[in-house]
Design a protein around this nucleic acid. Structure first.
Length: 480
RNA sequence: GGCCCCAUCGUCUAGGGGUUAGGACAUUAGCUUUUCAAGCUAACGGCCGGGGUUCGAAUCCCCGUGGGGCUACCA
């Protein structure tokens, strides 16, 4: 049985990088018919917050990455919050101590920091000097009795090498002598990442550890722990990192990095999902993948080794693609609250027509607000360039005048009835259609660009159209 | 500093000894004679450098360079 997990630490929103890791795990599980497990690594008591927990669930849920076991979903391998597994971790730490694989260390952080600096000054690797590893048992007992704060360190034999057999990178060899006696339990009694991760992955029977590249260097330490326990190794797969424009690790400096922020900016979850799937993964020449296609086509073989730069332009393109694909009702649902917020309550049928007029031209959902302004607000001013081009020309006044008359006479105010009016007028004046349309567009919208003219006229409605033509007609004579 | 990973257009990627090095985003141009988008077409643009191996290297090997990661009582 394939069992994979996403194991974020709740110290902030779900980041793009984390979301991509979650996605690849989820895809692998779904593709292989395995289980996707969510485990919250909250052993950093200082930085973990409840709000961050919620934010992670929210991000995953928005992307539709459902987990088979984890918080809110029972499984038989719980608990899924690491801090609730404290007893389990402590028991395992005791086992290692008893087996002679771990020991108490009473060095203070200050002492360690000092030693590190000294080592750096001597240009030596800042390894732990094993002071406490050599403490006689009586001394240890004494210090424990005196309640001197301590951590537990893993007793690492600095000989031989540890090979990480990675599904993406192949065999990676680490000499054990470059490692040191790392801490497995902090002085607050909580396990460190490397320890808790190993114990939980084993107990939860995780078959594949798929995680970011930044953990590759941690893997030999973890493998040594598996060995000390006598446990079998899971398969490892280290994903390439996601970088910002400047090729450094993606962070707040690069703008929006939290998945939820992308929702708030007006991106569609399927667009974000599609985009991050293509970061580090490819499938021939294909670019657009539905969730189902992603599940069908995903494989670890398709995952590359090179880090990827997050490119907002391409995300935007995808978002536009997906917006054009979604059902009208959904687009209306997405736009309605934004329009109401900007322009107040409006008749739903009218609002619906406005939104659909822009279906082809949105990149981000909130684009609807500025684009549709003239459907909700009066036209207060005209584009200056437009005035020059379309209000000062030979026929502009006559055109608007005639349009007003002809449109006033129209019984039904629909596209198919509106179109002939323009065609006839252009023919009468012997000018191109644009000559008639441009001044009209400016008069009705104040702008140089809009959806197709007849659509705008129909949606605007007769009363507003006539009123705006009159407004323009009284404006033009006042022009210098 | 030590150790580890990585290197194809600006960006995401396909290709893994013999290809005109393919696609996508972005950019530029053209077409859509109602604008702007959308759509379509085209152009621009790349195998980090140096050594090998080979008849032949973007592809395999080594070195260099560049970028990233780890080296915490963070995960």
């Amino acid at each position: 049985m394939i069992r994979v997990r996403f194991a974020p630490s709740p110290t902030g929103d779900l980041h793009i990088g984390g979301a991509r890791t979650a996605l690849f795990n989820w895809l692998y599980a779904r593709n292989q018919g395995g289980k996707f497990i969510l485990r919250i690594e909250d052993t950093d008591r200082e930085r973990s917050t409840l709000a961050a927990n919620k934010a992670i669930f929210e991000g995953l849920e928005w992307l539709g990455l459902d987990w088979d076991e984890g918080p809110k979903v029972d499984g038989s391998y719980g608990p899924y919050f690491q801090t609730e597994r404290l007893k389990i971790h402590q028991e395992h730490i005791q086992k290692l101590i008893e087996a002679g694989h771990a020991y108490y260390c009473f060095c203070t952080p200050e002492e360690l920091e000092k030693k590190r600096q000294e080592a750096a000054a001597r240009k030596e690797p800042p390894k732990y000097d094993e002071t406490c590893r050599r403490l006689p048992p009586e001394k240890v007992k004494e210090l424990l009795a005196q309640k001197v704060p301590y951590v537990i360190r893993f007793k690492l034999e600095p000989v031989g090498e540890t090979i990480v057999d990675d599904k993406i990178r192949g065999k990676v060899v680490f000499k054990n002598e470059v490692l040191d006696d790392f801490v497995i339990m902090k002085s607050d009694g909580f396990p460190t990442y490397n320890f808790a991760c190993v114990v939980d992955d084993h107990l939860m029977e995780i078959s594949h550890v798929i995680r970011g590249d930044d953990h590759l260097s941690n893997t030999p330490r973890q493998i040594l722990l598996y060995r000390a326990f006598g446990w079998p190794l899971p398969k490892f797969a280290h994903l390439p990192m996601i970088l910002g424009k400047d090729k450094t690790r993606l962070s707040k400096r690069h703008g929006a990095t939290s998945v939820i922020k992308y929702r708030d900016l007006g991106y569609l979850p399927e667009a974000v999902l599609n985009y991050i799937a293509r970061l580090g993964w490819g499938y021939g020449d294909e670019e657009i993948f539905s969730r189902e296609e992603l599940i069908k086509k995903f494989s670890l073989k398709g995952v590359g080794k090179t880090s990827a730069v997050f490119d907002t332009d391409k995300l935007n393109w995808l978002n536009g693609k997906y917006i054009r694909k979604i059902l009208p009702e959904r687009l209306v649902d997405l736009c309605e609250p934004l329009l109401i917020e900007a322009y107040g309550d409006h008749d739903f049928e009218h609002l619906k027509k406005v939104v659909l007029a822009f279906h082809d031209r949105l990149v981000l959902i909130p684009d609807i607000v500025p684009l549709s302004k003239y459907f909700f607000k009066e036209v207060k001013e005209y584009d200056p360039q437009g005035i020059e081009k379309h209000f000062k020309s030979e026929h502009s006044r006559q055109i608007l005048e005639t349009l007003k008359e002809k449109l006033t006479q129209l019984e039904s105010f629909t596209k198919d009835k509106i179109e002939p009016v323009f065609k006839e007028l252009a023919a009468e004046l012997n000018v191109k259609l644009g000559i008639v349309i441009h001044p009209c567009r400016l008069a009705l919208t104040g702008a140089l660009e809009s959806p197709p003219m007849y659509d705008v006229i129909e949606v605007l409605g007769k009363a507003k159209v006539i009123a705006r033509l009159e407004q323009a007609l009284s404006f033009i004579p006042r022009l210098p």
